[in-house]
Nucleic acid binder design. Sequence first.
DNA 1: TATGAATGAGAATTCATTCAT
DNA 2: CATGAATGAATTCTCATTCAT
Lengths: 215, 215, 215, 215
Amino acid sequence: MGTKATAGKTRERILDVSLAMFNDRGEPNVTTNHIADELEISPGNLYYHFRNKDDIVEHLFARYENSIDLAIVPPIDRLPTLEDIWMQLHKAFETMWEYRFIYRDLVDITSRNRKLRMHFARIIKRATANANEVLKGLTTAEIMRASRAEIEATATNIILVATFWMSFNSVRGGQLEKGSEDLTQGIFQVMMIIAPYLRDAERLHLNNLALTYVR
Amino acid sequence: MGTKATAGKTRERILDVSLAMFNDRGEPNVTTNHIADELEISPGNLYYHFRNKDDIVEHLFARYENSIDLAIVPPIDRLPTLEDIWMQLHKAFETMWEYRFIYRDLVDITSRNRKLRMHFARIIKRATANANEVLKGLTTAEIMRASRAEIEATATNIILVATFWMSFNSVRGGQLEKGSEDLTQGIFQVMMIIAPYLRDAERLHLNNLALTYVR
Amino acid sequence: MGTKATAGKTRERILDVSLAMFNDRGEPNVTTNHIADELEISPGNLYYHFRNKDDIVEHLFARYENSIDLAIVPPIDRLPTLEDIWMQLHKAFETMWEYRFIYRDLVDITSRNRKLRMHFARIIKRATANANEVLKGLTTAEIMRASRAEIEATATNIILVATFWMSFNSVRGGQLEKGSEDLTQGIFQVMMIIAPYLRDAERLHLNNLALTYVR
Amino acid sequence: MGTKATAGKTRERILDVSLAMFNDRGEPNVTTNHIADELEISPGNLYYHFRNKDDIVEHLFARYENSIDLAIVPPIDRLPTLEDIWMQLHKAFETMWEYRFIYRDLVDITSRNRKLRMHFARIIKRATANANEVLKGLTTAEIMRASRAEIEATATNIILVATFWMSFNSVRGGQLEKGSEDLTQGIFQVMMIIAPYLRDAERLHLNNLALTYVR
DNA sequence: TATGAATGAGAATTCATTCAT
DNA sequence: CATGAATGAATTCTCATTCAT
């Protein structure tokens, strides 16, 4: 009792600390010894719980995949509203922020690991399909007007902007990461891709929000 | 004489070969010994010409910065047309493709090197400002209609999509890289951000192109 | 009760499974965790029953020593026949095959463990003495003709060939191990060391067998 | 100048020291760091000269293969004599002794490395064929009398005894290795496999030698 | 300019063994 | 008897970088 770890505790701590360190410094810059040091456990113990470093990454990714899958479920049995989109984006950006290390070195990580590559491609495909559905729903609900081609291109752009918003933000300089406020701007940027397709009322509404968010 | 290198020749070859290898395998996966091997020179000689690996990266980046600066100069003394945008995007995407290694590991590279970080931020800022100018010009020319807030958000989105198009493409799976055709789709995706703001004629034109390009 | 192990049961299972795994993959390539895994017990439990890995090896060796001691007892109170030799070799080779892991890494194992070194030397000494006895017996029975010096050298050769037959077979390539047939050839090879000392009738008999066995 | 290594010197020193240490302690018990330490060079330098530990082993093996190939060339254009056999065995045993680490862990080494496995099998095949030739030659020269089947079995036994003589010697205890005298006994043991097939004069000659060598 | 041998601090991973429960 | 988490020294190998020539 006390400092002694109970079942599964260390395993979870490894994942938690790894996640924090990966998010902080980037996965390629965090070694398994760093992680063990930070946890004050031996490297051997870390390898008792995970086969190798990639195993840790894969488990974190699986966690992420579960979360993001929940975040991008479209409303069932009714047409979507703009509010739904705000909500979905919020949940998605939150989740992505939690696992931002994946996005920081996305190309490198997916090119090194076949499993992650396949799963990430699946997430993108699913997210794009969902975006498409939602846009179609908005059109059916006559909240926006767009051709089929416009909807397709727009869905892709939405996912691209969402996927790389955090990277873009860190890369365009200024302050490094202040978290929530930046995310909100990311959400707003995505909304602004849809904006011009909206009816005047909604478009005006977004325009006013813009004054608050755009940097 | 004969095999003797003329002034600056080896130096340039190092840059050329490094660029090719970085683009091919990603900068983190290319060691200085790989480069020397490929060039059939000694590692010592490589370090005679460049202080360290980052020095090579920085020089390549400087090259890139020059090229991209030329690519994103707006037309002077007249209002821009849609054709201008196609042209600019083409030049920009070509240049980015030439130096695609920068974009493959963008966050990692910029986060570990202050100089690159500052310079890349400057490029983004400049590109965004230029996009802003062009959009304003299109508005003045009454080719498109958009509020100031919409223009700002759209400029940012344009730069973001352009910046990460190649990454997005490699990360969403499917075929790896077939080059020019993918770039064309990237350009198209950028255009589709502007599309809904255009007058009907131009909008329709883009929509028709969509049928060809969107995947 | 029920799943509860009876006294000595786990201990025996450890020995049995270790033997099987050592034979299969070679002792140096089997870790204590492999063994525990295979047994579906904990490594801690394994170390409750045995002080360390070498302790397991030593116990297996003791088992082997008992078996082989039984196999190489010469016929008492009568002179040996060729049939006796076939029988003895059969029993010896069977026993060695059962504990073939010892022979696979013989030098390594005996050089790092004093106890095993002494015991194995004893086995060799005993086996050689026995071979000597038998050859002398055959000579007395006038089944073969050989000088004392020839008998001594031949006894040593017999033991050497028997000791390393399995290694030789695996090392000279061809098929890996098909077990019984290979053993039979080993026995035959040993017999052929004796052959030229035999009377014509027996020598001819062995020669005919040769056509079947030699590869 | 002086302690500075000239071209190829370090490479050869690595091979020489590795060989000495492998022979001494057995290849599995010598780490690359041990070797570097002994040589007073950095591990990095060792890996500059050889791709990995196996690369060192393979180069030593190649050296050995060259030497042994020279040792087992049969006399051309005339029938062999017993003297030829003594000479050949001498050369072969000397060479094997020089590279005795190969024989110490023969099964382990060849089972881990495909290349060595193939090459060693080739050596055995070649040596056996050569033994066969020589025995046939002796028969033709009427120095010995043996059937074809006897020759085949005897050739195999000769190679087996030669291959494992050193292992047998270290494993049967007594003093560990005193080198040359042990080798001479090994040669003698091989000769004693041939002895009973010889004409009386030669057989007697060998018998007398026996009194000196057999332990 | 150029060579190429050399460095050395790590990186990931393994494995016999221990120990609190 | 049994668990299973934990240890830590060791092992192979890498790579940016230096330096005598």
